[in-house]
Design a protein around this nucleic acid. Structure first.
Length: 588
DNA sequence: GCCGTTTTCGGCCCGACTGTTTTCAGTCG
């Protein structure tokens, strides 16, 4: 059973941002192309800044254009406004077409090589006619690079190494893998004498779903010895750089790890700087300038007197700039700085506010833990409830159970609850949404469940229209409480279904259906950005682990991270409710 | 290319490290 409380916001908010995305993509690409062409770097920055502004615009850019207010978008001036206008009128931007046709394909890839930047790419292209990685490799092997101005034998050798690494390099690593690597490194770092206050910063600290590099910072009583010990760790494959205060290494073939050592009095500014994101930092330093300060990773310096202020705590950096402390997960320049200045940051949900898990499997289907084991582990986490949601028959590969078995399970759970004090097992199911949009159990069976989680498992490659109508049909079923892993993506392996998520979220708002944030590290679905959109549309969410073993209940931390990155507060998340309130909400 | 509570021109975030130089440009984060 589900409540009916369609959100007011649903009637007010409409998302139709296709044009915004198209235009942002073109401007981003123009920025990249200009960079390769060796254009003024501030011009390059201007394009990507304008692209970002349009990407995060709250309204349709065509509306802005009709009002003649394009150049009122921050970062958009006369020239870019004209190009946008040209696109909306003719469907083309001549300057863009010219750039694309006059830039050899493959040059963008050159920029991805470590140590090769726009100036080098432009030089290589001009002097040697190099426009692909293969051509660059040939030129390096023939020692043609070292004869160029500003180049030499070392540079040439480094380029060859960078090419080799580039070819081996996989994409960014999933957060869960990064966690394993970090734990491994930390065991070594903790053994290095003199090293203390070790923190992993960067995208890892921000909780991004994939992590590029691993950035570690620390203080040390003997910095250069600590750095030397760091680059000598047994798992180091390569050393990219090593100075008195920082070093970069490669481990596991392709993963870059940076260590930076700082004096304790600058720890706060360093942690702030090293956590990023780059965009967040650029904007923050801009704010500092407006207020007459220069912010670096070492201090906040008054521009007029040159006086330096030091911060050993990160919180105090934000305070000094006149804003609220911004949690790392929000630092993506998606409006968090403006919100912090206005004292309007959300009170983010955290792990301690989670009271239960609404999507887990047991040995009744493909889980490896019995209901008792799942319950026992859930209780040890301090939860008040857990929903046992095994698969339905269509998902035969995952041991989906028949209607009879499901009813048997429901009865079993009812009986188990009688012997439980201070904890509630919810009898549930993860019912499959079949290819034709019907559900895998009859309504009278679903009615017997406390919680019905519905999800697509089969026929995932249908056309968008079909996927949409399947999900909408499921949400319109009065017994369906939650849609699990709503987009179906598996990070790095499977694209999301072809689905109109704006339509799905609108339907969720209209029908009062809860959207899941699946905490399984390979899923994280909804993603942070969709979670934020869902919140804005008044959709409630459940953070669920989809655990198939007692241990996996621990995945909750990844789901909470996604929720925090999506600006969610406890009130947006259904499983922050106490058992009593949740049951009232579900009409049990 | 954008922008303005010192500015419509001259800035644009800031510092470490590298490899090339012989005082610094390029790259990176």
């Amino acid at each position: 059973m589900k409540p009916h409380e369609p959100s007011l916001l649903y009637h007010l908010v409409r998302f139709n941002h296709v044009r915004n995305k198209e235009i942002a993509a073109i401007l981003y690409e123009m920025g990249e192309l200009l960079e390769i062409r060796g254009e003024n770097r501030f011009k390059v920055i201007a394009y990507s800044r304008a692209a970002r502004a349009i990407e995060s615009l709250k309204e349709d850019i065509e509306d802005v254009w009709r009002r003649g207010e394009l150049d009122r978008i921050p970062g958009v001036g006369k020239a870019i406004a004209e190009k946008i206008s040209e696109y909306l009128t003719t469907g083309h931007i001549k300057a863009y077409d010219d750039l694309v046709s006059s830039t050899p394909k493959g040059m963008k890839e050159l920029l991805q090589l470590q140590g090769v930047g726009p100036k080098t790419v432009a030089l290589l292209h001009e002097k040697l006619g190099v426009s692909t990685v293969d051509e660059l490799e040939a030129a390096a092997r023939q020692h043609r690079i070292r004869r160029l101005p500003g180049m030499g034998p070392t540079k040439e050798a480094n380029i060859l190494k960078a090419i080799e690494r580039h070819r081996r390099r996989s994409t960014r690593i999933p957060l869960s893998v990064a966690v394993r690597i970090v734990e491994h490194i930390m065991r070594h770092l903790e053994g290095i004498e003199g090293l203390s206050n070790i923190t992993v910063a960067g995208s890892y600290r921000r909780g991004k779903e994939t992590v590029g590099d691993i950035d570690i910072l620390a203080t040390s009583s003997r910095p250069s010895e600590s750095i030397a010990a760091f680059v000598r760790m047994p798992m180091v494959d390569d050393i990219l750089g090593q100075g008195p205060t920082k070093a970069s290494i490669i481990i596991e073939g392709t993963v870059q790890v940076d260590l930076r050592i700082v004096e304790p009095r600058s720890y706060g500014t360093l942690l702030q700087y090293f956590t990023g994101s780059k965009e967040h930092n650029v904007k923050l330093r801009g704010i500092a300038l407006q207020r007459g300060y220069s912010l670096s990773e070492y201090s906040l310096k008054r521009l007029d007197t040159g006086e330096e202020l030091f911060f050993d705590r990160e919180e105090d950096v934000y305070k000094a700039l006149g804003m609220q402390y911004i949690p790392p997960e929000l630092r993506e320049d998606r409006g968090e700085i403006e919100a912090a200045l206005a004292n309007r940051l959300p009170e983010l949900v955290d792990l301690s506010s989670i009271k239960g898990d609404l999507h887990v499997h047991s040995t009744w289907s493909d889980g490896v833990g019995s209901i008792e084991e799942m319950v026992s582990h859930a209780r040890s986490l301090g939860y008040e409830y857990i929903a046992i949601t095994d698969h339905s028959p269509s998902v035969g590969i995952a041991g989906g159970i028949s209607e009879e078995r499901l009813l048997e399970k429901v009865e079993t759970i009812y009986r188990m609850n009688e012997g439980l004090e201070g904890f509630r097992i919810l009898a549930g199911t993860e019912v499959d949404i079949r290819a034709d949009g019907s559900l895998d159990y009859r309504d009278e069976i679903l009615e017997r469940c406390d919680v019905v989680v519905a999800a697509i498992h089969m026929a995932q490659s249908q056309k968008e229209r079909e996927i949409n109508s399947r999900l909408v049909a499921a949400m319109e079923n009065e017994h369906v409480d939650i849609i699990a892993h709503p987009t179906g993506r598996i990070i790095g392996r499977r694209e999301p279904y072809r689905v109109d998520m704006d339509l799905i979220l609108e339907t969720a708002a209209r029908t009062g259906t809860i959207m899941e944030i699946n905490a399984y590290p390979e899923r994280l679905d909804l993603s942070d950005e969709w979670a934020r959109r869902a919140k804005e549309m008044g959709v409630r969410m459940a953070i669920s682990t989809d655990a198939h073993s007692p241990d996996q209940l621990g995945f909750m931390r990844y789901g909470v991270t996604v929720a925090r990155r999506g600006w969610l507060e406890p009130s947006n998340v259904i499983n922050t409710l106490s058992a009593k309130d949740l049951m009232r909400h579900l009409g049990i």
